[in-house]
Amino acid sequence: MTAPLLEVRDLVVRYPARARRTPPVLAVDRISFTVAAGETVALVGESGSGKSSTAAAVLMLRKPEGGSVRFDGRELTTVDERGLRALRRGVQPVFQDPHGSLSPRKAVFDAVAEPLRVQGRWDPTTGPARVAELLDLVRLDRSVARRLPHELSGGQCQRVGIARALASEPKLLVLDEPVSALDPSVRAGVINLFTELQDELGLAQLFICHDLALVRHVAHRVAVLHRGRVVESGPARQVCDAPTHDHTRELLSSVPAFDHLTER
């Protein structure tokens, strides 16, 4: 069996105390999971469960206090600055707030070209075609390239964010609640886009979410987080259809069931 693309073992993330005489906050308490190439793994939990802290550690935006994060055969927690820069290209984030993650003064074309320029891969002759290709990939009309974020809908902005992430040709996308800020009528389209991109490009995805019904749809495997620990994990359909931990059951029952109302 080949090694997984991402292997997180005994991860610990702790935040310093907010006030004197209060203990530091243990946000992630020895979490372990793996993501294989081409696989979608979901981390599910409420706010404070440690899912975003785990994502920040995987993206190397926050140095973990303990444990190991191995990506593509390299240990991220001990790698030096130069090695990190090279590895970061392989792990790209898509954030929750579609407008907030784009510069309001940068046109879509420049936003998508920016990662190529920063990484020294910008070629003035082929660059524009590459940007157009990336817009095609996220199903955006090429005419949006000249527009500014405020002229776009939330769903379009999120697609620009995804195109930016894809510009680096990553192997893993870290999706932190990528549709919860979107209008209900555009959510399904963006969710389908992630699935299509996985089928087309073989991308692995770490999907952070609080909605188990959605996770059942998109993820292959799921880990349920509660107070910084994994309380249940396994194939997404198994965990959602036959949960064994009380907290998973509570998460499931808090999403009002629709199926009994609709004829599906």
């Binding site: 389209g189 969710i191 019904a213 749809h217 998109v218 959602c240």
Partner: peptide, 14 residues
């Protein structure tokens, strides 16, 4: 377009 609890496809009607 809401995720159904017993759906089989990974794609949602959008």
């Amino acid at each position: 377009s809401l995720p159904a609890r017993h759906a089989v496809s990974r794609y949602l009607p959008a």
